[in-house]
Design a binder for these strands. Structure first.
Lengths: 207, 207
DNA sequence: TGAGATTTACTGACCGGATGGTCGGTAGAA
DNA sequence: TTCTACCGACCATCCGGTCAGTAAATCTCA
């Protein structure tokens, strides 16, 4: 018999999580296509054949990583932010929580944006559908600001993608060993984004 | 004898430009590693062997595309913007010109950000060095705003990367067939960025 | 002008190596 | 004895790249 009793839902046993994390790390460094299964196997102290005891295929591994990352995004960014009633504070919560996820060590979350092309169409659609929910949630938060007449005169779709650009670019340049801590950087980004989008606080509060 | 008398400077004959453009398009769609040389050859109506009459290697093709893209960035964004004396107007010029390059048809410019890992270290360093010049140019423009006390209380490095994120994310979502024209989108992005970074115009002027 | 030489632009067939994936087997725990 | 976790060896396929050869265009010079 082959692996994965619960094929997709992620977060099974210790070993599986370890494989996801290490694989995500390597995919992040080298890219999905440039990474061989032997690479990953070696990183988790297995042979390639041993690795296939835990996963079904390379594409399946990528899909599992992305599902794992989506779960983290949902539980650590979306769900807590939904609880925030005030739209401005909700926006700040989204930026800060998503920023934290992107700057912490686990690279699964960056795979989510960089390697969708590696998925088969069916799996890709599943992930994109889940991402779309997040997109609408953020855009809806901006629309709510518009209702309160706090939003500048901008198209909310453009504003949302603009914000995502700034956020998702973070892992490409942020270094934990650098001069600024992740909290400092995230705070600054939140301030820039909020003052770029909202007309209320002409000088945003400091982090 | 093999190809390329002027090996790297790009923009040789018609056919070479055609190859660069088509290859950039396919690299953009499928990724560098996922694209085979036969793919590219077929797209320009050649056999793989015929393609190698024009290029030296796959990596060399990527490098040529990136040099070509850097040249366009330098002549169409950096050089004209250097002429703009006022820092705020210079920043707007950078955003608008770079935005235009990113939303027009030629995909070479997006390869520049997405496929650096495909280059050999030596070539990668050359491209990164050239990119760094651009980075310092933009950050310098923000520093100039600070000197004029028009910049909000933000770290200019964070602000620069934040701006790059918004810009470089553009080609991932913008569709020329969509509701908004590229000029409208670029104008909105410029307004958001300028009001996010500068404290002068609390409501930025419309495009 | 035109016959022969050379160059340009290209092809089909081929090669070594790497890759994703499989399979029969096995040590040790339960 | 059965099941879990794993390995060494193997396979078909594909990929980047090469090479010998060639049709047509271009040049050379009597």
């Amino acid at each position: 018999m082959k692996a994965s009793k619960k094929p997709v839902i992620a977060a099974e046993c210790d070993r599986t999580i370890d494989i996801y994390t290490k694989a995500a790390q390597i995919f992040h460094e080298q890219g999905f296509d440039a990474t061989s299964m032997s690479n990953i196997a070696a990183a988790v102290d297995l042979t390639k054949a041993g690795l296939y005891y835990y996963i079904e295929s390379k594409e399946d591994l990528l899909f599992a990583i992305m599902n794992y990352a989506m779960e983290r995004l949902e539980t650590m960014v979306i769900e807590p932010s939904r609880e925030v009633a005030d739209p401005e504070q909700r926006l700040r919560s989204i930026i800060e929580r998503h920023g934290r996820l992107l700057t912490e060590g686990n690279k699964a979350i960056t795979i989510l944006t960089d390697e969708i092309e590696g998925l088969k169409p069916k799996h890709r659609k599943q992930i994109l559908d889940r991402k779309r929910v997040y997109f609408y949630f953020v855009r809806g938060t901006l629309d709510a600001q518009r209702a309160e007449k706090k939003l500048r005169n901008v198209n909310t779709t453009v504003a949302t993608f603009g914000l995502f650009g700034t956020l998702l670019w973070l892992p490409r340049w942020f270094r934990a060993e650098g001069r600024l801590t992740s909290e400092e950087v995230i705070g600054q980004i939140a301030n820039i984004a909020l003052s770029g989008l909202l007309s209320t606080s002409c000088e945003a509060q400091s982090a």
